[in-house]
Simulated assay, not measured.
Amino acid sequence: MSGSAERVGVVLPAGGSGSRMATAEAPAKQFRLLGDAPVLVQTLRAFLRHPDVGPAVVVVRAGEEGATRDLLADHGAEADVVTGGPTRQASVHCGVRALPAPVEAVLVHDAVRPFVTRSVIAHVVKAVRAHGAAAAAVRVADTLRAGGDGPLFGATVPRDGLWAMQTPQGARRDWLLRAAANAAGHVATDEVGLLQHAGHPVWIVEGDARNVKITRPSDWPLAEALWTTWERDDVGQGDGDSAV
């Protein structure tokens, strides 16, 4: 694959209903204001300003296309907006197909992970170019314990060798397209699961603990607090090799 930015695209699935955070008074989480722009825009900006990444596609639910295009235009964020499918996997497939023809490698990133560093993006791109597929993840640090009967804890789960998945997750475009087309009813929760189902190995890239997904109401005040220092500190500039 070429190293030019035009050949690395990004897909942001943004079709979640945000039911755990959306209320009558507040929009879905990807459209809530974080700093000077909605979460979706802040996440997209991290990729648009990255030298390793070129075209971007945002995937939304049917009926949200026009409003999303207007929102991106209002904030000067350039991306195609396409309609997704009934599942995240189907929506990502729509986004990958919508990228322009020169794109040979694709990053998929949650629209509600605005705290992705430039370093993590660069390392995932590097690993995809070298190995065909890669994803960001962090080593599990907490003790893991299964639930038992009723309110009781069960057995402790060994955490050695366990990773908590993050995004971006990336791969050769042809791998992602074929994996989705040949899934034969298999529904994966992320691109790693889909690629592994298709027989493709996926390289581990060390992620960042700050690269959190805004999901629950309790995540929002934490995200606002982190944002106050995020841009000021200009994080994620390191470019050492973080692939495992």
Rank of each mutant, 00 (worst) to 15 (best):
V96P: 00
V116E: 00
L107N: 11
G85R: 02
R69I: 13
V128D: 00
F47K: 08
V92D: 03
V106E: 03
G9D: 09
V11F: 00
L40M: 11
D74A: 15
A130K: 13
T83H: 07
V41Q: 00
H50S: 05
L48N: 10
R129M: 08
V41H: 01
V128P: 03
P51W: 06
G15S: 13
A133Y: 03
G18R: 04
T68K: 06
H50F: 02
E64I: 02
A122T: 09
D110T: 07
A24I: 05
H131E: 14
L12T: 08
V10M: 08
L71K: 11
H93S: 10
H123E: 14
A122N: 04
D74Q: 14
G35V: 12
G76H: 03
E104V: 05
G9C: 08
V116F: 02
G132L: 06
K126D: 12
L12D: 02
D36R: 14
V59T: 06
V138E: 13
V60G: 07
R118I: 02
E25V: 10
V81C: 07
A90H: 05
V103S: 05
A137Q: 02
E65P: 09
T23R: 05
A62Q: 10
S119C: 10
F31K: 04
R97A: 12
L34V: 11
